[in-house]
Design a protein around this nucleic acid. Sequence first.
RNA 1: CAAGCAGGCCGGGCGGUCGCGCCCUGAGCAUCCUCAGGGUGAGGAAAGUCCGGACUCCGCAGAGCACGGUGCUGGCUAACGGCCAGGCGGGGCGACCCGACGGAUAGGGCCACAGAAACAUACCGCCUGAAUCAUUUCAGGUAAGGGUGAAAAGGUGGUGUAAGAGACCACCGGCGGGGCUGGUGACAGUCCCGGCCAGGCAACCCCCACCGGGAGCAAGGCCAAGCAGGAGGGAGCGCCUGCGGGCGCAGGGAGCUGCUCGUGCCCUUUGACCUCCGGGUAGGCCGCAUGAGGCGCACGGUAACGUGCGUCCCAGAUAGAUGACCGCCACCCCAUCCAGGGGGACAGAAUCCGGCUUACAGGCCUGCUUGGGUG
RNA 2: GCCCCCAUCGUCUAGAGGCCUAGGACACCGCCCUUUCAAGGCGGCGACAGGGAUUCGAAUUCCCUUGGGGGCA
Length: 128
Amino acid sequence: MKKVYRLRKNEQFHTVRSKGRSWANRWLVLCALPNDLPYSRFGFTVSRRVGSAVVRNRARRLLREAVRLRRETIAPGWDLVFVARAPMKEAAFHEVDRAVEQLLRRARLLLPDPDDEESQERVKKDEE
RNA sequence: CAAGCAGGCCGGGCGGUCGCGCCCUGAGCAUCCUCAGGGUGAGGAAAGUCCGGACUCCGCAGAGCACGGUGCUGGCUAACGGCCAGGCGGGGCGACCCGACGGAUAGGGCCACAGAAACAUACCGCCUGAAUCAUUUCAGGUAAGGGUGAAAAGGUGGUGUAAGAGACCACCGGCGGGGCUGGUGACAGUCCCGGCCAGGCAACCCCCACCGGGAGCAAGGCCAAGCAGGAGGGAGCGCCUGCGGGCGCAGGGAGCUGCUCGUGCCCUUUGACCUCCGGGUAGGCCGCAUGAGGCGCACGGUAACGUGCGUCCCAGAUAGAUGACCGCCACCCCAUCCAGGGGGACAGAAUCCGGCUUACAGGCCUGCUUGGGUG
RNA sequence: GCCCCCAUCGUCUAGAGGCCUAGGACACCGCCCUUUCAAGGCGGCGACAGGGAUUCGAAUUCCCUUGGGGGCA
C-alpha cells in the first residue's frame, strides 16, 4: 500500500480515535472519520499488550495485506484506523481477513458489489 | 558400537502470482508525484542494555579529595569487567571443566542462638594441698578427655609430670623471615632460622594497585510556517459625545489572476500596512552507513592477534519496508503393508562497532577420552 | 530508540546480615458485646516476584531472568 493511502502522523491517529465512530469484534477495533478526500486512508495500531516485536510486526502485516486486497471495495473519503487486540497474536491470515470484512460490513463502508444482491437491496432501502 | 568432552558451522532450498521500503537510470517542466527498467532488502543472538569504544554537545590551568569500577601473572586490543597463554586452588577414572583468585600482625566493626569462653577464657573434668566423721567446700595447678557451636591455641608416637601441656624430642603438615636455583612474572623446587604468637567475614567499612570529567543520535547541526518580540518607514481635519467611541470628507493599505473601474474590509499616532533583524515552536532536511568492514592467500606468533597483497560493496525505515496465497523437493513426527495426516525453535535492524549475558526445534563437521566387541 | 526507578499478606506499608516461624493498619473469617446493625474487644487466615552466588546464616549483599512504573523530541 502506497504511503499516500496511509495515515502518517500521530495527530491524525488521535483525531480519528477521538472523534471518529468505532466498531469492534474479538480481534480488532475499527475507527472511522470522514476526511473530505477523494480516497480513503488507513492506519494500523498494535500495542505492546499484543505481544513481542515479532508478533506485532506480523499482526500489522497481516492487517495491511487484508486491507490492501479489499481496497477496491472500500468506500472512499474516510480515514480508518484498525487497532489489533490480544487474540490477534494467534490469528492466521484468513481469520484476520474475515475480521476486517466483518467490521467494514458493520460500518457500512463496503461499496455495493454488483454480484451481491443483498447489499444492493440494502442500498436501495437506504436510498428510499 | 555405547557413553561422554572440547572446538567450529548451519538455522531449510527452488519456482510462480499479487504487494512493500531504499538506491540507480530513463520519461513526463520535476531530489519530493506518476510510470518503465535494473539492483538491493533482518540475526546468531538483530534481544537484555551489563561493560568497552567511535561520534556529538557541554565543562575543563594543573594537582588532589570525594564517588564508582576492576582485582593471580604475562600478553592481545582503539578499549574493556573481553579474549589467549600460564600459575595456584577445587571437581572428574579420563578427555576436560569450574573459580569476584590482592591484603585479616594498617586500623575500625561484626560473629545471633547455644556455649564457661567467639579471641580471650575454664562449665563438667583431671591433679595437689587444706578444712570436714562423711556428703562436700575452699585455694591452687592443668588444658589430655567431655559438652556447645558454622567455627574453640596442628597430627602421630615418645620423654616428662602430682596431673598435664610443643614444656621437650623425632617424623609429617601448616605459618613467618632469609638465602640459592629455574622462570619476564604469578609461582615452583630446595636449604637454613624462628616459634607453635594461636579463627572467620573485605559481594561490611577500609588499605593497596590500576582505571574513570558529564551526558547521550530523542546527541548535535541546518532550514523554518504560525503566534509573539525588536528597529526603521508610515497618511488628518471637522463635528457629536454618556469619553468607551461614533459620523462626515480626505488620504493610505492589503486583497479580489496583470491593469483600470468597482466592491466591501482595515487604518490615520493606543499605528493599518511595508521593509529589515535576532531567537525559535509545528514541520522538514542533514547526522545515516566505506567500516577498528567482510572474504581469500602469504608471512610472524604456542595462541588471542598482527602485518602485507588481492578482491568485494553487503538494509537504512520514521505509525516505521522484507508480506500474502500456492506448487515441488529435502528434513522431523504419527502410521508403517500401502494410501495418507501433521510439524518448522528462539526471535525483527533503528547512530555504528568490539564483547558479555540470556533464549533457541533440529542438524552437520573435526579432534579427543573412557568402556566393550571384532580383525 | 536512549536513560532511570520499583517489586514484602487481598490493599497500603515497617524492615539497613542473626532478635523474622517477617511487624502494623484496613479488608476477610469466627466468637463476645447488642433486640439487630455499626463501633468496640478477643482470636484466626494470609506475603519477601523467580533462579543462582557470597556467607555458618540473605527479605536485606552481588549477578541473571520476569513483571510493573517514569523521564527524554
